[in-house]
């Protein structure tokens, strides 16, 4: 059926507005990138707008020469990998038993966890606890306090619950031990939920800013986000160079280069994240 002119016009206007919207989302990101690879001169004269001018990688060369930046980048990679492994291990450990309907006291344990998840004691009690356990200024302050997200645990539990009981029963009749059931039936079937929770946790670690701000004073342990804040928001460029602040490169180039390098991994894994996250949010909202 042919559409009426007014309806086609509607479609065009809609498409045009959405195009505008995507440009508003993308342009600031693109702009930061082209400034970061443009020469200092055009950036100072505010000439860069559509394409990079006098392209150069000087800003990137400068930041790669900064020890504290490289160290924080490595720290963040470590926190992300180790933190995500801790998260997945602990979440699975918690979710699997709770997915089993024959577990006595299951609802009591669930209530115990839900209370801990819903009621957040807040910033200062959290700080005092980490302090009293002598975890401040150690990597454990980053890895342990958030080891299990109650919401993610519920997502995983729900996933386990949806694995057909018949499969497990059949294996049990065949004489499979509990360990073998987990290793050979549950885990292989649960790859999707592990993948999506891994991505969720990993992005959280990569972007995490408040826990390190509260729990770390030692600059050697700083993650990328803290260095990023000091450089980009507080404009403490000396932060990077250890006192030396005179270089040939415009500070603005450096700031945008730092931002861009910090979001690069996110942009690279984004296609995968997006797929899994969308699924995750749907599981979450269906199950509630």
């Amino acid at each position: 059926m042919k559409m009426k002119f007014s309806d086609r016009l509607f479609g065009w206007i809609n498409a045009f507005l959405l195009l505008l919207f995507t440009l508003i989302i993308l342009y600031p990101i693109y702009y930061m990138f082209i400034v970061s690879i443009s020469g200092s001169g055009p950036v100072m004269r505010a000439e860069v707008s559509i394409i990079p001018l006098e392209p150069t990688l000087d800003a990137y060369r400068v930041i790669l020469g900064f020890n504290s930046f490289l160290r924080s980048y490595c720290n963040t990679i470590f926190y992300t990998v180790a933190g995500t492994l801790v998260n997945l291990f602990m979440t699975a450990l918690c979710a699997y038993p709770l997915s089993r309907s024959d577990l006595y006291g299951r609802s009591a344990i669930t209530v115990f966890i839900v209370i801990a998840t819903v009621f957040d004691a807040g910033m200062i009690p959290g700080f005092m606890l980490v302090n009293s356990l002598h975890l401040r200024n150690t990597i454990w302050a980053i890895l342990l306090p958030g080891a299990i997200s109650g919401y993610n645990m519920i997502l995983m539990r729900t996933f386990f619950q949806n694995i057909p009981v018949d499969l497990i029963e059949a294996a049990r009749i065949d004489g499979a031990s509990e360990k073998r059931i987990v290793a050979q039936i549950i885990l292989p079937l649960s790859k999707p939920i592990f993948a999506s929770l891994a991505l969720m946790y990993a992005v959280g670690h990569w972007n995490s800013y408040l826990p390190p701000l509260l729990y770390l004073d030692d600059k050697k342990l700083y993650p990328l986000q803290l260095i990023l804040r000091n450089v980009v928001i507080s404009s403490e460029l000396s932060e990077l160079s250890g006192g030396m602040s005179a270089y040939s490169v415009n500070p603005l180039n450096i700031k945008y280069a730092v931002i861009f390098v910090s979001i690069l991994p996110i942009i690279c894994v984004y296609p995968f994240i997006q797929k899994y996250f969308e699924k995750g949010i749907m599981i979450g909202s269906l199950k509630g």
């Binding site: 800013y209 990023l228 980009v232 928001i233 931002i259 910090s262």
Partner: peptide, 22 residues
């Protein structure tokens, strides 16, 4: 359009604020 619109959700608060400030 959907993919582009979700992207900023995955940026850290520090990145978004850094962009805003600059």
């Amino acid at each position: 359009v959907q993919s582009i619109s979700y992207l900023p959700h995955f940026f850290s608060t520090v990145v978004v604020c850094g962009m805003v400030v600059n």
